[in-house]
Amino acid sequence: MFQDKKEIQSIVSQMSAKHHDDEAQLRKNPAQLKWKWQINTDDSPPEIYNRTLYLSIFAFGILGAARGFDEGNISGCIALPSFKSQFGLADKSKSVDEIANLKSNITSMVQLGSIGGALIAMYSVDKLGRLRALQVVCFIWMIGTIIQITSNDVGQLYAGRFIEGLAIGQTTTIGPSFTSEISPKAIRGLAVLIFSGQSILEL
């Protein structure tokens, strides 16, 4: 069986010689080497890197922005003069302790909702499917935001932020599980990175 070992070896050496030629060519022209964008496709057909795939990864990827945007937004809001006067954070009659209490309640209400959201996600992501679960999350998130921006007192703000939390707690389960399932293995790491990167970049 191995009598044509030499033959195979010679073919192999020819192949690698050809490969080295290509490499030498690239080395002669370093610009080509440096700027040639290529994905290691593992010989998979080129059709699989298409618009439908990228759109799906993008839609679930920017879901990662939900959490980061909320943290950054509330961090900025509690420093804004208009927000402070609206919700009594600049109230001179309140003690330091009361203001600290109020401030921590406003910021942490989303995290409280997120605990519930993470529990809901255990159920919804498998029962509803990834796509329906995503749509439900967007819907809850919009309701929460509308309640927040129409609020004039703290109670309504709390409610809005809690409902928003129910949506945000689900995003950390839905996003990574969808993107890692749908992307071909050569770009899987990149796809999950898009999700986690979004939580800091926010779009």
Partner: peptide, 10 residues
């Protein structure tokens, strides 16, 4: 999301 494809794995 209306242009996305549901995960075949699910």
């Amino acid at each position: 999301s209306f242009f996305c494809i549901e995960s075949p794995r699910w």
